[in-house]
Design a protein around this nucleic acid. Structure first.
Lengths: 233, 233
DNA sequence: GCAGCAATTTGACGCAGGTCAATGTTGCGT
DNA sequence: ACGCAACATTGACCTGCGTCAAATTGCTGC
């Protein structure tokens, strides 16, 4: 019995495409790792030496500029794939937002294994296509939405995304805990921390949401929130 | 002799992974099309029924909001791949910016053919990974750069991108013709047309660039332009 | 329970870039 | 060559969001 047999994300991660003998081989190539909150797994500009599957926890992908401005370009959850296979450099830094567990592979080993297993590459392709759609969709938010629309879109996205926590699909949640602090929300939305804070207090004042504590959000009026994502007001 | 044998992008497109017998099969599935400037190939939200390779011309991928705000989320050139294989909907509209020629496939046919040809899928995966890196990098620009930085980054990117026109690599060009009007530049950068215009005239005034006509740009001081992409000034 | 620190909120203010409107320029069809 | 329509530039003004600074909240370890 290998570590894969008891893996929490066995069925959802790209490994799900493999038969047990091949999984056995892949298992030998991988190493399970614990990462503490705040720790980075790879850095923007470095050679891409590692790829990984997320087993548990939430991590961010970010790019930043010389003067410290940062943009979060992706958030990964359990069963998601991290890293840049097939050559080149890492284009973003990967950092744990919560304590996390990942299953890492030397990129060279993974590349070779993937080339020999078309089903695995196919799953990876599907995932990558989905991520690309998601990234492009987010570009609309970053380039064209105002602060209020950004916050509303963000809250609804989180409500949908965090619902998919395990095997059962709970549907969009009306109460959830964000894995982000205010600064990180700002870095996702291309805003400042102050603007995020002000928009949230305004939504509270309007009775659209509630924030029992810093990280949990309760959606009181989903319809109104949905209206806000598009033309404001 | 098939159309593929004389294809302008034969070696650079994903078809380049195929042997001639298989190319023959793929050729039978594809149809060559002419598209005039302004015409759209697929629409945001529609079922994804087509995929295509670009043979000639430039096309934009865009998303837009109810009130008309638009964001260009990608630009494709000859040899690039268009469309969303493997299920689902089109997440963006594809529109020709110049007269163009494409080689289209029914998505169902393409999906099946791709699944049977791992080398093709591999090329597609590589391309998709590169596009994802590009999209995420652009998110930094949209979320965190100011107008001047955006324009500078855009001009340098175009200078690099348009150089790769055919077989020979010319290196970054100091004189090139944009396939975009001002509104489209604005839609790429998340700005208004007026701001784009003002920034360009300012760069002219500073002697950094020159614009002999509406669509051609001459870079006079590349170093200074490069400095502007990061912390402004 | 309290000191101390980090995270968040709130307030006051300024400016980059959006909006609206007028003017200039270019290219196309007749 | 002319006139029109689309595109681009310029100007004046205004506002949403960033900036800076101070106050508040909440968490950690003792």
């Amino acid at each position: 019995m290998t570590a894969c047999d008891t893996c929490l994300v066995r069925n959802r991660a790209i490994c799900g495409s493999l038969e047990s003998e091949e999984l056995e081989v892949l298992n030998k190539l991988g190493r399970r790792h614990r990462i503490v909150r705040g720790q980075s797994l790879m850095w923007e500009g470095d050679d891409s030496l590692l790829v990984a599957n997320v087993i548990e926890g939430v991590l961010k992908l970010s790019t930043s500029m010389g003067d410290g401005r940062e943009q979060i370009v992706g958030v990964v959850y359990p069963s998601d794939f991290i890293g840049r296979p097939f050559g080149g450099k890492s284009f973003h830094t990967v950092t744990a937002l919560t304590d996390a567990r990942v299953c890492t592979f030397a990129r060279k080993d993974f590349d070779q294994f993937a080339r020999e297993h078309p089903d695995l590459e196919h799953k990876l392709l599907q995932r990558t296509l989905t991520e690309l759609d998601r990234a492009r969709h987010w570009m609309l938010l970053l380039g064209r939405k105002n602060a209020r629309e950004k916050i509303a879109t963000f809250l609804l996205e989180m409500s949908a995304r965090l619902a998919d926590g395990g095997c059962v699909d709970l549907g969009p949640l009306d109460r959830f805990e964000l894995p982000f602090g205010r600064q990180q929300i700002a870095d996702i939305l291309g805003l400042t921390i102050e603007t995020v804070s002000r928009q949230l207090t305004q939504l509270k004042a309007e009775g659209v949401i509630e924030t029992p504590d810093r990280r949990t959000v309760v959606i009181l009026d989903r319809d109104q929130l949905e209206e806000m994502t598009d033309s404001a007001e």
